[in-house]
């Protein structure tokens, strides 16, 4: 593992960047007129300048994973975060959509926390199923549960947007789908009650809230009910992780988007035999990993989400 303050290119660094060609970067979201637009950070500078409010999303860093598809996810997470901090317009904060760690071990959480704190950005998280494997979820909640409800759900306002972090990995269903559960759904209904329909809403949770691929449990059993409470809002953006690849869908005013992993890509439904890690050709890693950044752009246009791989 290279030094935390590593910045200068060297052979190890190049190796990391090679891994980055499929592993994740952050995604930068710029919100204009209530419309979040996403792009991966290394293209961000070349694309529309991020004016106004923006935040970055990273996902599925899986610290502790050590298999050949990416023996050093710490390095790829660090590279992703380096790109976030190198942005000319500093994002307001960082959202991590879960699977921060691979096995919920304290040292994995510590390493992630240290790296994310190194950006100087406040980090908002939701747990993935890999973050709550041990200790009745205490390893996660002791670090990230302060000020949250239930198993770690919460909401906050920033940049004129109402953000909602949901937890859908605690009570996985028999068909493998995630679930929010009654108490969380009731809280959500109450949380958005009385808010103006013109308030842009950003919801983030680990497992896709929509049915991305039911056979592999890539969806949330009661996700439709949650979306039902949000449908009256003019702009709703749903950010998820879990599936280690980009999938997008727009339903009315609701745009669903899953982020890449900063650690390793997973198989594509309908192509791969199973949802496990996918080995990619040497040099291709960067095109499979990602960072997203969201900015608020004052245009009044409908919600659109665009993102690109780091390379290729």
């Amino acid at each position: 593992m290279s030094r935390d303050d590593e910045r200068r290119p060297d052979p190890a660094r190049r190796q990391v960047l090679r891994c980055m060609s499929w592993a994740g970067t952050a995604m930068i979201w710029t919100v204009a007129g209530g419309i979040p637009r996403a792009r991966l950070v290394d293209r961000a500078e070349a694309a529309v300048p991020a004016k106004g409010f923006s935040f970055a999303q990273i996902s599925d860093s899986h610290l502790g994973f050590d298999k050949p598809v990416n023996p050093d996810p710490t390095a790829t997470l660090r590279a992703a975060l380096d790109q976030v901090t190198a942005m000319p317009e500093r994002p307001a904060f960082l959202i991590h959509t879960g699977d921060i760690t691979h096995l919920s071990k304290p040292e994995e959480f510590d390493a992630a926390q240290q790296l994310m704190a190194g950006t100087g950005l406040t980090t908002y998280t939701v747990p993935g199923e890999h973050d709550i494997l041990e200790d009745e979820r205490r390893s996660y909640l002791n670090r990230y549960g302060k000020g949250t409800r239930g198993d770690g759900w919460y909401s906050f306002d920033a940049g004129g947007i109402h953000f909602i972090g949901l937890v859908n990995v605690v009570d996985l269903q028999g068909n493998g789908l995630g679930a929010l559960g009654r108490p969380q759904l009731e809280w959500l209904e109450e949380d958005v009650r009385g808010r103006s329909a013109s308030t842009p809403i950003v919801v983030f949770a680990h497992v896709p809230l929509w049915l991305a691929y039911e056979n592999w449990g890539w969806g949330t059993a009661d996700g439709a009910e949650a979306i039902g409470y949000l449908k009256r809002f003019g702009s709703v953006t749903v950010l998820n992780g879990h599936i280690h690849q980009v999938m997008q869908k727009v339903e009315g005013h609701v745009a669903f988007h899953t982020a890449r992993s900063t650690a390793f890509p997973q198989g594509v439904p309908g192509q791969a035999k199973g949802p496990g890690p996918m080995a990619v050709p040497p040099g291709a890693l960067r095109s499979y990993l990602g960072v997203s950044r969201v900015s608020l752009v004052e245009t009044g246009a409908p919600l659109a989400i665009v993102d690109q791989p780091l390379e290729g």
Binding site: H130, L133, G176, N215
Partner: peptide
């Protein structure tokens, strides 16, 4: 039986 992490297994 099932896998607790991937209950579709």
């Amino acid at each position: 039986y099932i896998c607790g992490l991937h209950p579709h297994m």
